[in-house]
Design a protein around this nucleic acid. Structure first.
Lengths: 148, 148
DNA sequence: TGCTATTCTGACGTTAACGTAAGAATCAGA
DNA sequence: TCTGATTCTTACGTTAACGTCAGAATAGCA
């Protein structure tokens, strides 16, 4: 878990901040959706930073908006995962070629997400249009009734 | 199950036409998502019409697009259910006042669906914008790299 | 009327995504 | 250092949405 400069949070606080439960957060760590600090000793409390809170929020948002399984989400969020770890690397490398590579990789990940989101949105748009058309037909029938 | 003028279909054919399974169709009937003919004798095969196929398609579409439980879908689809049965009534009533009532009821149901679809679509739009913004930032950083 | 493919009705199995409970351990504050 | 609140780990429980299987019954056709 990346601990930012801000005061570290405990799992209960993160749960409250993100509107979920501690169990869910542990579960997400269990299935690899959340990093899970590799240097935490057995039994010690987990510590989170602002970045982790954002990550959880993002997961929940995608979970609710797209209809993916958490496994699929994990794949999709390789983007985030990669970018997060790459961001740390970015701060410690000076080689422009390497930086370029990392950024372009991030671009690919974002592209994948964008494509998925757009497809969903188009499908919903189609559905919306059909509903509007239905409604129009009913309005028309209503207007053609006697005793208007 | 409403049997239209076209040749009646069996559950396996409906499953194939809608890209699902017979079990799923029976399950949907079991939980009230599909009508289930009240006059079918124990053990006799189910018979479906084109309208039923459309209904199943609609269910699957909404199931996949909105992230609702089938219970919630059943509520939402009271719209369809009501309109379907009302359509039959419509064909057998002449009273304009009654027709007006039925049509206005249908309007309400469609309105409910529309509202839900629109909210989802807006949320997805917001997400899309954010992803595009992220991408733009990365492009900018790339363009500011040396040896462009 | 006989045969075969399909369906019917239970009933139990399965998987994902957590909930819940229990006993021990940790942490922050007085 | 003591203490109360929170967390940890482990493990079993739960629900939705079907899958699967078995034995009997039907439906359509030769």
């Amino acid at each position: 878990m990346s601990t930012t400069a801000t005061k570290p949070l405990r799992i209960g606080e993160v749960a409250e901040l993100t509107g979920t439960t501690a169990r869910t957060i542990r579960y997400y760590e269990e299935i690899g959706l959340l990093p899970g600090a590799e240097d935490r000793a057995q039994g010690k409390h987990r510590a989170y930073g602002e970045a982790d809170v954002e990550r959880v929020r993002e997961i929940i948002r995608l979970r609710d908006l797209l209809g993916l399984s958490l496994d699929q989400l994990a794949v999709l969020l390789d983007a985030e995962t990669a970018r997060a770890s790459l961001r740390r690397e970015l701060e410690h490398t000076e080689d422009p070629a390497e930086i370029r590579g990392l950024l372009e990789q991030a671009l690919g990940h974002i592209g994948t997400q964008l494509e998925l989101v757009r497809m969903r949105r188009l499908a919903l748009g189609q559905l919306e249009e059909e509903l509007v058309a239905k409604r129009r037909r009913i309005h028309k029938r209503l207007s053609e009734l006697p005793e208007g």
